[in-house]
């Protein structure tokens, strides 16, 4: 991270090239890879929003599934029951989970360490039970389906029923969110988050209202997780109570740990690796979770800072010796 911060131009160049590559990719690949990448982008958004609270602020939240699920249900229910258009629906996919994040965060940030982990799991479990049993609203375990409406965004007519349209739309939203999050973590606000992670007591002594900043991080992450859930529902045209299960938060944890927490680029790499691995292994192996488990344990033991952390420390070592 630090090396890119010194060279903002380098980042712009790389980011631009990657996006350009992804924009022209659909012209060369099969439809399946487009849907796979669309899904990948959504999980990337979920993982980087989780990185904001875990990697930067140091709060291990297993409750992100709650916001992901609420985001998913927001667009599904509003479109299905009230015929709301897709753009206001997506906006509400951020706002409604933010309200919930504010509520959950208000209580959760009073706790630290392991207690924080557990209280967030409990909130997610409560949401999952309600989602499972309140079938008239959520469809329970079966879930709900819907068809998003096409809409106009500036010059573009966007039809989410179309695979390519969906791909570009999700790519654009996720890229934008990445830039926003990057801006946040580089801003003074982001520095405060990191100082809380590094030493909460010191941050408090300096005079920061630690709980308030934690809550801010939690709400931002909740809103973006909700957006990820909304985009996911738009991609599948489906939302179910399973979205709310705390193990969904586990996805974000795995991706972030494998890629490297507190780097923003790490979760992107981690999501890419794990999802590709799963979708590759499924061609000849039933137990993909076994491999994911092994990868997770090995990464935690050998490279607790993830792949990006490993590369960074290598590079630093190289620089030091040179």
């Amino acid at each position: 991270m630090s090396s890119w911060k010194e060279k903002p131009f380098g980042f712009t160049l790389i980011f631009g090239l990657v996006i350009l590559g992804l924009v022209i990719l659909p012209f060369f690949t099969e439809l399946y890879y487009q849907t796979f990448l669309t899904e990948l982008f959504v999980w990337i958004l979920f993982a980087i929003s989780f990185d904001l609270i875990f990697g930067y602020t140091g709060l291990l939240s297993f409750g992100q599934a709650l916001f992901f699920g609420i985001g998913g249900y927001t667009i599904t229910i509003l479109t299905r029951k009230y015929g709301l258009g897709t753009e206001p629906g997506l906006l509400l996919c951020i706002l409604i989970p933010m309200v919930f994040a504010w509520f959950v965060g208000y209580f959760s940030v009073k706790l630290t360490g392991i207690h924080f982990v557990i209280i967030t799991i409990i909130f997610a479990i409560i949401a999952n039970i309600i989602g499972d049993t309140w079938t008239s609203l959520t469809g329970g375990k079966d879930g709900l389906t819907f068809s998003p409406r096409p809409f106009r965004l500036g010059f573009f007519q966007i039809n989410l029923m179309d695979i390519k349209g969906n791909y570009y739309f999700v790519l654009a939203v996720v890229a934008l969110c990445y830039l926003i999050l990057r801006r946040i973590v580089q801003s003074p606000l982001g520095k405060i988050f990191v100082s809380i992670r590094e030493n909460e007591e010191r941050a408090r002594l300096i005079g920061y209202h630690v709980q308030r900043y934690k809550l801010i991080a939690f709400i931002i992450a909740g809103g973006l997780s909700g957006l990820a859930g909304g985009l996911y529902s738009l991609t599948l045209k489906y939302a179910g109570a399973g979205y709310l299960h705390w193990s969904v938060s586990g996805h974000a944890v795995v991706y972030t740990i494998v890629g490297g927490m507190g780097t923003l680029i790490g979760p992107v790499v981690g999501t890419g690796i794990i999802l590709s691995l799963e979708h590759y292994l499924v061609n000849f192996l039933q137990a993909t979770d076994l491999v994911v488990g092994i990868v997770l344990v090995v990464m935690v033991l050998l490279a607790p800072k993830g792949i990006v952390g490993l590369i960074q420390s290598r590079r630093k070592k190289g620089k030091a010796s040179a």
Partner: peptide
């Protein structure tokens, strides 16, 4: 699994 089937409904139609 009925949830699995429901989730595939939109795709089957699409």
């Amino acid at each position: 699994h009925s949830g699995v089937q429901k989730a595939c409904f939109p795709l089957a139609e699409e």
